[in-house]
Simulated assay, not measured.
Amino acid sequence: MIGNISSGFETLRKLGGAVLLSAGLVGLASPGLAQTYPARNITFVVGYAAGGTGDVIARLVAQKLSESLGKSVVVENRAGASGGIAASGVARAEPDGHTILVGQSAEIAINPHLLKGLNYNPDKDLMPISLGAVVPLGLVVPGKTPYSTLAELVAGAKSSQKGLSYATAGAGTPSHFAGELLKLKTQSNLTHVPYKGAGPALNDILGGHVDMYFSGLPAAMPNVRSGNMKLLAVSSEKRSASAPDVPTVAEAINAPGFDITLWIGFFAPRGTPNEIVTRLNEEINKILVQPDIKERLLSEGADVTPMSVEQFSIFVKTESEKYAQVAKQTGLKAE
């Protein structure tokens, strides 16, 4: 059974006081380095095509971080290998805080348990900086589809000889887990169609080339509001505040325990000075709680929970352990 990735938030919050004190002491060790950083422009690397949830959050934070640090923060999309191309590239970058991975669940917590021959190790090659957001996945279908509920969609998949297709942001991503879990729970005929990120997948939903997609809500909601897509259900344990009338998958198909969400976080190459990591953590956390940013993310269904470096490190470790168990239980393998 897939656990709720937000279940550990209370524990992490309770750790907050001691952890933040520790982070502050680390920052005091060499104040000069943090004060002279950055020396040049910073690059945020996103492992998926433009238009996905991670890309949306990266660009929101990049704009604000440019203002606070006084240097440009450029977002670069390096799609492929379920975020692995971007992750391996950042892992080999100079550890000076000027190349940052805007990582997601797949390349950090899932790939190591599904893909053989990875040329990076998230635990050894990357340093957690800060959690950006946690978002439910929304099951979206083309606006002109005949299905208006998840029950109708499942019935259509079962009645069609060829079944239905479901898009994902790549093999082994949370959208892949969600699609396979839906297939298992409903015993439906669903065919996986992987893309290099949410943007291309959403484009093919809009074009009617694929039947459905578990998308991060921030990336999908504009098209849902415009009527170009229908939102049939959300993948989280609880309903989303941004779409309170939309049922959870667990509700819609009577599948207790159906709870998969997507998270986005910031990572530096291993060896980056702790002073710089702490500075970035503090600056990003300040941005996330700014009223305009927080309101934007919350309105799109994202859960904003700023964490210290140590808290986020614990979160990442817990997520990796969870997906290792899920992969073993489901037998899911990347294609």
Rank of each mutant, 00 (worst) to 15 (best):
G3S: 14
G3E: 07
G3N: 12
N4Y: 03
S7L: 06
G8T: 10
G8K: 07
T11Q: 11
L12A: 09
G17Q: 11
L21C: 05
S22G: 14
S22L: 15
G27K: 05
L33M: 13
A34R: 14
Y37G: 11
V45F: 07
V45G: 01
A49G: 12
G51L: 09
G52N: 08
T53Y: 11
G54Y: 02
G54M: 05
A58S: 14
A58H: 08
R59Q: 13
V61D: 02
A62K: 06
E67G: 05
G70M: 09
S72E: 15
V75Q: 11
A79D: 05
A79N: 04
G80Q: 06
A86H: 05
S88L: 05
S88M: 12
V90S: 09
A91L: 04
A93K: 09
P95K: 11
D96I: 09
T99P: 03
V102S: 12
V102I: 15
G103Q: 02
Q104P: 03
A106I: 00
E107K: 12
I108Q: 11
I110A: 09
P112N: 07
L114C: 12
L114A: 04
L115H: 10
L115R: 15
K116T: 13
G117I: 09
G117V: 08
N121F: 06
D123N: 10
D123P: 02
P128S: 00
P128M: 09
I129P: 09
G132D: 07
G132L: 12
V135I: 06
V141S: 02
G143R: 12
K144M: 13
T145W: 02
T145N: 01
T145S: 15
Y147H: 10
T149G: 04
L150V: 12
E152P: 00
V154N: 01
A157P: 01
A157N: 04
Y166C: 03
E180C: 01
E180N: 06
K183I: 06
K183Q: 08
T186A: 01
Q187D: 13
Q187N: 15
N189G: 03
L190F: 15
T191N: 14
V193H: 00
G197K: 02
G197I: 01
G199K: 04
G199W: 05
A201N: 03
A201T: 05
N203A: 14
N203L: 10
I205H: 03
G207W: 02
H209Q: 11
H209K: 14
M212Y: 04
M212F: 13
Y213Q: 01
A220R: 03
N223A: 13
V224N: 11
G227D: 03
E237Y: 05
K238Q: 14
V246N: 00
T248K: 02
A252G: 10
P256L: 07
G257H: 01
F258R: 00
I260M: 06
L262P: 07
L262T: 07
L262A: 06
W263N: 14
I264K: 06
R270A: 15
G271W: 06
P273R: 01
V277P: 08
N285H: 06
K286I: 11
D292P: 07
I293L: 02
E295M: 15
L297R: 06
G301I: 00
D303E: 14
P306R: 00
I314H: 10
I314Q: 12
V316R: 13
T318V: 13
E319H: 10
E319I: 05
E321H: 09
A324C: 08
K328D: 13
L332D: 06
K333W: 00
E335W: 00
